[in-house]
Amino acid sequence: MTEILDILISASFWAAVLRIASPLIFATMGELICERAGVLNLGIEGIMVIGAFAGWMTVYAGGGLWTGVAVAMLAGMAFGALHGLLTVPFGLSQHVVGLGITMLATSSAYYAYRLALPEVTNPPRIAPFQPLDIPGLSDLPWIGQALFSQTALTWAAFACVAVVTFVLFRTPLGLALRAAGENPHAVEAQGLSVGAIRMGAVIVGSGLMAVGGAFLTMSAFSSFFFEMVNGRGWICIALVVFGAWKPGKALLGALLFAGFDALQVRLQQTGMGQIVPYQVFLMIPYLLSILALVLMSRRAEVPAALMTPFNRGER
């Protein structure tokens, strides 16, 4: 137990929590926007892969870091547009389309990677985002290292939560978006286009997912390799449920999961790691997330029209 305590008071643990949470926060916000508008976007995993690749490739090819983020976002939005086209005006099954998008985006990224770099065995590295030095705060003992040694993308992730919250709950656009996911007939009857709102939500949401993926290559690992997204998209789907479709609670969930993840890596290096197989540690965040999900989401209100296609003029 003292080992856990040691980990929890180390500044590097808290820095790691914020770092691990960042891509989850972006992608969770993206998924939350889609679902609030009534579209389940299971393309998230693949869109994160394409974002990770597109962002990294841009920088590798000589582009700037922020250009890379923008390209990643555009790539995500393109796949989001495809998802939206199939699920919104065509009203196809959101499960099937989402899984299809995930496979398509993932394979496209791998294929493009192999085309661009046919010969490499060791993934090449780029110069990633560097931690921002915040005058006064970053130099504080412990706190500076724990909380204020993050890259600009991490700060952007937290800003993203604030923006999404504000737009969803304080603006006419957010009102229309939430209504589209709750009762699209209400949106239609008030003279707005359900289709346009849902399309927009899926496209923007997918863009955020891709930025989450780009965080992995451009801020966390600095190179692109296969399987790097490694189920983070699916975690984000669960985080949206965990957060009861509320951005603030979803952020909390992302931090909690990141905390478990950072903890298990460090536990592997303790005495316990000698005895217990490492796979058990890998399970910890998932097990605890399932537990938290069960406890937190029992009374959650699902957007009533989630996964229900809306067809105008249908009887």
Partner: peptide
């Protein structure tokens, strides 16, 4: 069959679609 969003307030339901979507505040 009422066209109301159950998870929103009366006021929000009434306001829906009455203001330009890109207005920054309700």
């Amino acid at each position: 069959h009422f066209t109301l969003a159950d998870n929103m307030t009366v006021l929000e339901n009434i306001l829906l679609g009455t203001e330009p979507l890109w207005r920054p505040r309700l």
